[in-house]
């Protein structure tokens, strides 16, 4: 009988669920709401429908991301560092370093034999994360998803000198009033994030190949800016947002396999997608 594994990655802005056996059977990406547990319930349901599987058929569920503790039906919680590492190593086996630019943090992970052996993380400051672009996009009246393409038309990227997101936004307004072209401003913003992320990464010995994951990897302008800093091209998985969820599902598979080999019992949560509230 086939075994199925679910990975639930609740990030600060997006929630991702995948169901796998030998490959990804179904995936769902949706915005994270204030009540992660309720949302996890719904997206899991949607993923099960897509995979045409009852919840009872899921062998193991691993939750990851910032909201991982708020997933009542998860069998285990694993950090996003481990899940991203496992997911990136699966999707891009040649990767030795992973850069993940998420909505709330950015991280660099060193890989060895498909596992994280060192990492750096910026979770202190919005600069260097997707939040920086979100705030700027709102100020510029541009859709977040359009920023990458728009920046490719830049002729002379402006320099955003403030590293603080709030002040950088003010700087953007000033640049606009000075007549700077929109693509040049957006390219400047990408450059600012890339500089910040690259500074953080220097704590790791960056080894090629480098995989870029998270929402940041969907922004072509940011990818280009980061490649310019690194001096070489990065690898981007087909759906970079799913890397952590895929890693979670794979780690679930590893856990089950190990338990079966050792003959050790494996506690599992009840297979019930019950609604939960944050304050019970």
């Amino acid at each position: 009988m086939s075994q199925y594994f679910a990975g639930v990655d609740i990030g600060s802005t997006m929630t991702k669920v995948v169901i796998m056996n030998q490959a990804v059977l179904a995936s769902v990406i949706g915005p994270t709401g204030p009540e992660h547990r309720k949302l996890a319930n719904r997206v899991m349901e949607e993923a099960l429908e897509k995979a045409k599987l009852p919840f009872d058929d899921i062998t193991y569920v691993v939750a990851t991301g910032y909201g991982r503790i708020n997933v009542p039906f998860a069998d285990k919680q694993i950090t996003e560092i481990s899940c991203h590492a496992r997911g990136a190593a699966y999707l891009l086996p040649e990767a030795r370093t992973v850069i993940d630019i998420g909505g709330q943090d950015s991280k660099g992970i060193k890989l060895k034999d498909g596992r994280a052996v060192d990492f750096v993380m910026n979770d202190k400051c919005a600069a260097g994360t997707g939040r920086f672009l979100e705030v700027a996009a709102e100020e510029l009246g541009v859709k977040l998803e359009d920023m990458g393409k728009l920046s490719l038309a830049a002729k002379n990227a402006v320099r955003i000198s403030n590293t603080c997101t709030v002040f950088a936004t003010q700087e953007v307004v000033t640049k606009l009033s000075e007549g700077a072209a929109l693509p040049d401003i957006i390219a400047g913003l990408h450059e600012a994030i890339a500089t910040r992320v690259y500074g953080m990464l220097r704590r790791l010995k960056i080894e090629r190949e480098v995989a870029l994951t998270g929402g940041g990897a969907k922004n072509i302008g940011l990818v280009k800016a980061l490649e310019a800093k690194l001096g070489f091209a990065v690898l981007v998985p087909p759906e970079p947002l799913l890397t952590g969820a895929i890693g979670a599902a794979l780690l679930g598979g590893d856990i089950v396999k190990e338990a079966e080999e050792k003959g050790t019992p494996l506690p599992r949560a009840e297979r019930r997608l019950q609604e939960a509230t944050l304050f019970t």
Binding site: I81, K112, V117, D123
Partner: peptide, 14 residues
């Protein structure tokens, strides 16, 4: 503590 958790994971992996 999330960082500590991740660090423990890397120690285990090593």
């Amino acid at each position: 503590r999330a960082r500590i958790d991740a660090f423990i994971d890397t120690l285990e992996a090593v």
